[in-house]
């Protein structure tokens, strides 16, 4: 997974993406550049448009306007090539959960057109890496929420993508598994891969990512390296300062004991 000499294109370039749902503008003229080899965090309050942005970037949602370039390949002009470069873990979609974990990862590998032997080898590696060997033969519907995230991550990794787009990958994952996943992602970045991850856990993003963009109301408020963005305070304080909306009420009378 080394960077080809002369790679000048960013791993992901979003140009003026816009998406409306009826009256509501979910993503408003959003531009973002994710450099090759970066570990990029996308943070924002609920409803900021993170999932919508990532869906448009990965070809799951058609933008009203704007472009998504994956290593220079336009997602909406050459979707098959662009998608082959991306490993995608999306939030809020189901998996084919009547398959066993092993079948599900195999399925995704075959969908990307890999050879059967190649798929079998990679699936075995991934299950081991993500500590899912025990559960390989269990139906995904019987997995816990955390295991489901992990198997979805395996599905995203099976075709050795150059860019990983992960929407809320740490939600309901236990701390040990989260640490393991973090190690895997860090190793992936060190070997020349690029990761973009959305999260609301500021602390995690601050420790894990080297770049960060704060999104609110469908716009990028600030983007850059983590140190640039947070300045002298913590990322969380900086985030609250940017986004606002922190209240200090004690809640209504009847809810106090």
């Amino acid at each position: 997974m080394s960077i080809p000499a002369g790679e000048t294109q960013p791993a992901l370039q979003l140009n003026r993406l816009t998406k409306r749902f009826g009256e509501k503008v979910a993503v408003d003229d959003l531009s973002l550049t994710v450099p090759v080899g970066s570990f990029y965090g996308l943070v924002g309050p609920n409803g900021a448009g993170k999932t919508t942005t990532l869906s448009m970037a990965t070809g799951l949602l058609r933008p009203d306007a704007g472009q998504s370039l994956v290593h220079g390949v336009d997602m909406w002009h050459d979707p098959i090539k662009a998608k082959s470069l991306i490993g995608n873990l999306s939030d809020g979609v189901k998996l084919f959960d009547r398959l066993t974990g092993e079948q599900l990862v195999t399925y995704n590998g075959l969908l990307f057109g890999l050879e059967r032997a190649e798929v079998a080898e990679r699936v075995a590696d991934l299950l081991k890496l993500l500590d899912l060997e025990e559960a390989a033969g269990t139906l995904v519907v019987d997995y816990s929420a955390g295991m489901t995230k992990k198997i979805a991550l395996a599905c995203a990794l099976v075709h050795a993508p150059r860019l990983l787009v992960l929407d809320e990958p740490f939600e309901s994952v236990d701390p040990v598994s989260a640490a393991n996943i973090r190690d895997i992602l860090t190793g992936y970045v060190q070997n020349g891969g690029t990761v973009i991850v959305s999260s609301h856990v500021m602390d995690l993003v601050q420790r894990m990512c080297d770049h960060v963009a704060v999104v609110a109301a469908g716009r990028v408020l600030v983007a850059g390296t983590v140190d640039e963005v947070r300045g002298s305070s913590t990322l969380e304080d900086r985030f609250v300062e940017l986004v606002g909306g922190r209240t200090h009420a004690e809640g209504p009378e009847w809810l106090r004991r």
Binding site: E102, L110, L114, R116, V119, L127, E133, G137, T138
Partner: peptide, 28 residues
């Protein structure tokens, strides 16, 4: 969930039908 399990390495129909995208979809 009376969790049903098969042994690891058993991919069922995915090992029987051709290893192409269409074959995988048929197996699924």
């Amino acid at each position: 969930s009376s969790a049903k399990r098969v042994a690891k390495g058993k991919t069922g129909l995915f090992g029987v039908l051709p290893a192409t995208p269409a074959g995988a979809i048929a197996a699924r």
